[in-house]
């Protein structure tokens, strides 16, 4: 194999996208050709920049909350996104709208719960206990807060092992 053939294969090699036959063909060339080897190293060096960042934990009860909203007919797209943490000028959702919405969700959740409790005796159903739906408006409100506190608690030790950028795939 010559450089002309080898060069376009190098990024694929680094990404582990070559077949074992292709890799076996390319490897001897990389060993004998400093230019192509340098290219492979250059491609690989970038991996070291992509390290896992501090994880954002999933808030407790998130799945139950989302499922309730989904079943309540919330299709997501119409709802405005919360602003970034730093800005607070558009964070004021009208309280009445919020309460009505929470009540609607709670009502549907209660139906869901009653159906679920009749039908299921599984651990999954425990997430949908009646008291939880009664406290739904409060928990909706507290969700952001909990989330931030958890993140703060995780804080420094939330980092996980980095990918070893220096070794090949």
């Amino acid at each position: 194999m010559n450089c002309e053939h080898a060069r376009p294969l190098v990024p694929l090699y680094v990404d582990g996208e070559l077949t074992s036959v292709q890799s076996a063909e390319l490897r001897p060339h990389l060993l004998s050709c400093p230019a192509c080897r340098g290219l492979a190293q250059a491609e690989q060096s970038l991996h070291a920049w992509f390290v896992p960042t501090a994880e954002i934990p999933v808030p407790t009860g998130f799945a139950a909350h989302v499922a309730r909203r989904a079943v309540a007919g919330d299709t997501g797209s119409k709802r405005p996104f919360a602003p970034a943490e730093s800005s607070n000028h558009e964070h004021s959702e009208p309280i009445l709208q919020f309460v009505l919405h929470a009540l609607a969700v709670a009502a549907i959740a209660l139906v869901v719960v009653s159906i679920a409790m009749r039908r299921l005796d599984q651990p999954a159903a425990e997430e949908l206990k009646a008291h939880e739906s009664q406290a739904l408006d409060a928990s909706l409100f507290a969700l952001d807060q909990i989330n931030r506190e958890e993140l703060r608690a995780v804080g420094t030790n939330g980092l996980q092992g980095t990918r070893d950028g220096s070794s090949g795939r």
């Binding site: 954002i56 299709t75 919360a82 970034a84 952001d144």
Partner: peptide, 14 residues
């Protein structure tokens, strides 16, 4: 975290 939660919630709702 707020934006992440919004994005994920919106994804599941859609």
């Amino acid at each position: 975290p707020v934006e992440v939660e919004d994005i994920v919630q919106d994804t599941f709702l859609k």
